[in-house]
Simulated scan of single mutants.
Amino acid sequence: MKTSLFQNIMRVLLGSMMTFAGIGHLTFQRGEFQAQVPRWLPNSPEFMDIIVLASGIMEISLGLCLIFWVSKKVKIGIFLAIFYVLIFPGNISQYTNGIDAFGLDTDQKRLIRLFFQPVLILWALWSTGALKYLLNKRKS
Score class of each variant (00 low, 15 high):
M1T: 11
T3M: 12
S4V: 08
L5I: 14
L5S: 09
L5K: 02
L5P: 04
L5A: 07
L5V: 15
Q7K: 09
N8K: 04
N8I: 00
R11N: 00
R11A: 09
V12R: 00
L14G: 03
G15Y: 00
S16M: 04
M17I: 10
M17S: 10
M17Q: 02
M18S: 07
M18I: 12
T19A: 11
F20N: 03
I23C: 04
G24E: 11
H25M: 08
L26K: 10
T27V: 03
Q29V: 09
Q29G: 14
G31E: 15
E32T: 06
E32C: 08
F33P: 02
F33E: 11
A35Q: 05
Q36C: 03
V37T: 05
V37D: 03
V37W: 06
V37G: 08
P42G: 01
P42F: 04
P45T: 07
P45V: 15
F47G: 01
M48Q: 11
M48N: 12
D49V: 08
D49S: 15
I50S: 14
I51R: 00
V52R: 00
V52H: 03
V52C: 08
V52Y: 09
A54N: 05
A54C: 08
S55T: 15
G56C: 12
I57G: 07
M58F: 14
E59M: 14
E59F: 07
L62F: 15
L64K: 02
L64Y: 00
L64V: 05
L64T: 09
C65E: 04
C65L: 07
I67N: 06
F68C: 13
F68A: 11
W69I: 15
V70H: 14
S71H: 06
K72T: 13
K72E: 05
V74D: 12
K75W: 14
I76L: 05
I78V: 10
F79Y: 13
F79H: 01
A81K: 02
I82P: 12
F83V: 11
Y84C: 11
Y84N: 13
V85S: 09
I87A: 03
F88K: 02
P89V: 15
P89R: 06
P89E: 13
G90V: 04
N91T: 14
N91K: 07
I92S: 01
I92A: 07
Y95G: 14
G98P: 03
G98W: 02
A101M: 03
A101C: 11
F102E: 01
L104M: 06
L104Q: 10
D105W: 14
K109Q: 04
K109H: 02
R110P: 10
R110I: 06
L111D: 08
R113N: 07
R113V: 06
F115Q: 02
Q117P: 05
W123T: 13
L125T: 09
W126T: 08
W126R: 01
S127D: 11
S127Q: 07
T128L: 04
G129R: 05
L131M: 15
L134Y: 04
L134G: 08
L135E: 13
N136Y: 04
K137G: 10
K139A: 12
S140L: 08
